[in-house]
Simulated scan of single mutants.
Amino acid sequence: MTTLRLRPEGPADAGPVRRVLAAAFARPDVASPPEVGLVDELRDSDAWIPELAMVTEYGGEVVGYALLTRVRVRGDAGVAPALALGPVAVAPHRQRVGHGAAVVQAALEAATELGERLVVVLGNPAYYRRFGFDRADRMGLTSPWSGLGEPWQALALPPTVSGEGPLPRGEVVFPPPWSRV
């Protein structure tokens, strides 16, 4: 019986993750989708949190990926940490069987265990709503993508003892690699 295994990305996973991203985001007009370069650049940045780069393995093959990286929320109360979800990818031959939802849920659970409080994402509202995401503007969050409306979303993670208190509000500042996507 083939089982699904969820785990943090390891050093040997960089190549398989690149292949999943390239296949999932393939476009005929682009040799290499920007999401591949984004992940490579984020790995080499201070936004990288190794425990929050999650892979889905099925039959020993990496078939899914979800990445949470550090962003900052700049508001009246100062600067607060938050996370950005993305990219999320599943190899085309394993899509629509739950691997994407499983790897996103695993990443969100890992973030909660680390005491994180806030995650933002730019993506399909119908898909991300299942995890509890809602419009980010309703949470007082802005970004370069605020003008897109519903796809700009946020999720308040369950508080831990160390994470209690109000959620940050203000402008979400992404690390430089995000500006090239």
Rank of each mutant, 00 (worst) to 15 (best):
V63P: 02
V36P: 00
P50A: 12
G64R: 10
E61P: 00
S45V: 01
L52G: 08
P34Y: 05
A47F: 08
E41N: 11
G37E: 14
M54E: 14
L38A: 09
D40W: 04
A53R: 13
V30K: 04
L42T: 13
S45W: 03
L42W: 09
P28W: 11
P33I: 07
E57G: 03
E35Y: 09
D46Q: 10
M54N: 09
V39R: 05
E61M: 05
A53G: 10
E51F: 02
L52N: 09
E41Y: 00
V36W: 00
R27P: 03
D46P: 04
L52R: 12
G37F: 10
A53N: 13
S45D: 01
A31V: 12
M54F: 05
E61F: 00
F25P: 00
D29V: 10
A31E: 15
V39W: 07
G37C: 08
V55P: 05
V36L: 00
E51A: 15
A24G: 07
E57N: 07
D44T: 13
L38M: 08
D46R: 12
A47D: 03
L52V: 13
E41A: 15
A47Y: 07
L38H: 05
E57W: 08
E61I: 10
M54H: 14
A53Y: 12
T56E: 14
D29N: 11
A24L: 02
S32T: 15
I49H: 12
A47G: 04
A47K: 01
P50T: 12
D44S: 13
E57Q: 06
F25C: 00
L38V: 09
I49Y: 03
P28N: 12
G64D: 10
D40S: 12
V62A: 06
V62I: 14
A53M: 07
P33M: 01
D29A: 14
V30A: 11
G60W: 09
V36F: 02
I49L: 15
A47M: 08
A24I: 06
E41I: 02
E35V: 11
S45A: 01
V63C: 12
A24Y: 06
G64I: 10
Y58P: 00
E35G: 10
S32K: 08
V62S: 01
E41M: 07
F25H: 01
R27H: 14
M54Y: 06
P50D: 13
D44C: 11
V55R: 09
V63A: 10
G60V: 07
G37D: 15
M54V: 15
V36M: 00
P50Y: 12
E61W: 00
G59L: 03
S45K: 04
D40M: 03
L52F: 13
L42N: 07
Y58R: 14
A24Q: 03
G37M: 02
G60R: 06
G64L: 08
I49W: 06
M54R: 15
D29K: 06
A26T: 10
A47I: 08
P28L: 07
D44L: 13
R43C: 03
R27D: 15
G59Y: 09
F25S: 00
I49P: 01
E35C: 07
E41T: 11
A31G: 15
V39E: 09
E57R: 04
V62M: 01
D46L: 07
P28H: 13
E61Y: 00
V63T: 15
A47H: 04
R43E: 02
A24C: 01
P50Q: 09
S32C: 13
D29W: 06
P33V: 05
I49K: 05
P28R: 14
S45E: 03
A26F: 07
L42A: 09
G59E: 11
S45I: 01
